[in-house]
């Protein structure tokens, strides 16, 4: 995500799903008035891979996922699917998804999504930098008489 000031709905839902639950709770402690339409409910999603990485799909195994759907007082619906079993995380993400479709969007993008995206980018960059330091730099020894 190069642009930290605007996110598509799919991008924000992905970001909310990947965010550490406690960090999301710290950035968005408020509970906007909402009714729960479904869940929060924990279940399993079958993760698929591809044969040879690029071929026909196969079932790799399941992962735990918690989903939640909410409706704000204004009638806007929000949905979330987040990895793991944290029901508060899923509910918070669903409320945020709904609020991001209202006039609150700009404030929440700046206050919640942007910091989450920046922290995720930093986390990934750190890991990538540590991996990069383990890259082998080959050099060839000179052999023979000349």
């Amino acid at each position: 995500m190069s642009n930290l000031s605007s996110f598509s709905r799919a991008q924000s839902l992905g970001l909310l799903a990947r965010a550490p639950a406690e960090r999301l709770a710290a950035l968005f402690p408020e509970a906007a008035a909402h009714t729960v339409l479904r869940g929060p409910e924990t279940g399993a999603v079958m993760v698929r891979g591809r044969q040879g990485g690029t071929g026909a799909p196969f079932n790799l195994g399941e992962m735990t996922v918690t989903r939640c759907s909410v409706r704000l007082a204004c009638g806007t619906d929000g949905h979330a699917y987040v990895q793991g079993r944290d029901k508060a995380h899923a509910r918070r993400a669903a409320v945020l998804d709904a609020l991001l479709q209202t006039a609150e969007a700009a404030r929440l993008t700046a206050g919640v999504l942007a910091p989450l995206a920046a922290e995720e980018t930093a986390r990934r960059a750190t890991r990538a930098a540590k991996a990069a330091a383990t890259k082998v730099e080959f050099f060839t020894l000179v052999r023979g008489e000349d």
Binding site: M46, G49, P57, T64, A131
Partner: peptide, 23 residues
């Protein structure tokens, strides 16, 4: 434990070519 979980669906096949590889 997994037998107690409802199946919510399946993912799209993961793209291992786009992996953030550490090794």
């Amino acid at each position: 434990y997994r037998t107690t979980l409802p199946r919510l669906g399946h993912s799209n096949p993961v793209d291992t070519g786009a992996m953030a590889a550490v090794r």
